[in-house]
Design a protein around this nucleic acid. Sequence first.
DNA 1: CCCATAAGTTATCACTGTCAACATTGGAGC
DNA 2: GCTCCAATGTTGACAGTGATAACTTATGGG
Lengths: 200, 200
Amino acid sequence: MPNPTSRPYHHGDLRRTIIETAMAMLHEDKGWQFTLREVARRAGVSHAAPYKHFPDKAALLAEMALLGFDSLHKALTTVKPKKSNSLRDEFFAVGRAYVRFGTANPGLYRLMFSAEAGKAVDVHLSERALAVFGVITELLVRGQTAGVLRKRDVRGQAATCWAQMHGATMLTIESLLLIEKVGPDPLDAALLTLLEGLEN
Amino acid sequence: MPNPTSRPYHHGDLRRTIIETAMAMLHEDKGWQFTLREVARRAGVSHAAPYKHFPDKAALLAEMALLGFDSLHKALTTVKPKKSNSLRDEFFAVGRAYVRFGTANPGLYRLMFSAEAGKAVDVHLSERALAVFGVITELLVRGQTAGVLRKRDVRGQAATCWAQMHGATMLTIESLLLIEKVGPDPLDAALLTLLEGLEN
DNA sequence: CCCATAAGTTATCACTGTCAACATTGGAGC
DNA sequence: GCTCCAATGTTGACAGTGATAACTTATGGG
């Protein structure tokens, strides 16, 4: 007979719970300890239960990384510059949103670009990860057709922008771009310099 | 009596051997397994021997990261543009040297900017790590005084350059800047765009 | 020559990822 | 409504890891 005070034998939606618990742990970011057993413990489930939903620790991490790319993609596409419709404003808005996502979720962001997420290449080349690249590309294409940006290879430009944003994000996360060392607002300075290198 | 065929009880220079072995393992980069015990095994020493020279696994990693920064610093300072002395050439030479260092030593480079190297902040803020930042800054200052570069806050410019190079390096290491996806030479394109954003 | 101490070893602990064997349950088909 | 199966969860085990303690060896300054 089922004990009414204890949780039922079958959890019901353990897969989601595991991911959410793991995300929460990643968010706490305590020195990058991330044990599968601790996830199970926090989810109130035995240490082997996660293996019924993920073949591997790496599989769970890969799943989380992909969710991170989805989240980042949404953060970039839902950003709306306040009033002006100028490409410059949009460029800054997207850039700030990107870095803000990273600094708000440092553990997740690190995971997304870490080799730990299984065979990293597979994760990164996933459509969901490339969607982020697509947002930048689309923005640049519009800038080129509007005549605001120089007409160069747009993939190269997009790679440049991505590298700049990724670099700024990582250096911020790792506390390398300390404000007192590097000036008042390194991000805006970086975005401005980058934009001016792209503009006509 | 000492057995002449076996290694002597005291290794003699185990600290150096450990670091070199660990560096070699990092260079092989086989999926980022990095076991202290495996290091000891390869060094032909018992699994607890490294603890006589490093208090921690993190301490060894931190030491290696610092050596990496030294190495990167040397790579940047010893680069000599072939003939021309123009700042543009030097800028490209330094940028290429930076990314080349990262792609040539992906494991080490990842470690240098990874949170795993102990309290990462301490490592990064070390004088030896900031020396790399200094190389960029010095180059920019010269460019500004020569009137080639815009006279803006040089720390912000240096941060921008560092972020660009770091981002390009990481995206290359993680196989994200695939040539076929992104154009013929994303690095040169990025450096050119960056430079044009800095120039007068 | 002696012996304190640095430097290496073995043994052990708690913990992890992973797997196999077992237990429980919800639900599809009769 | 009953039965059985597959999905889901549990327990127990194994090898491998970081770390520490207790022990052993050799080296060099007095």
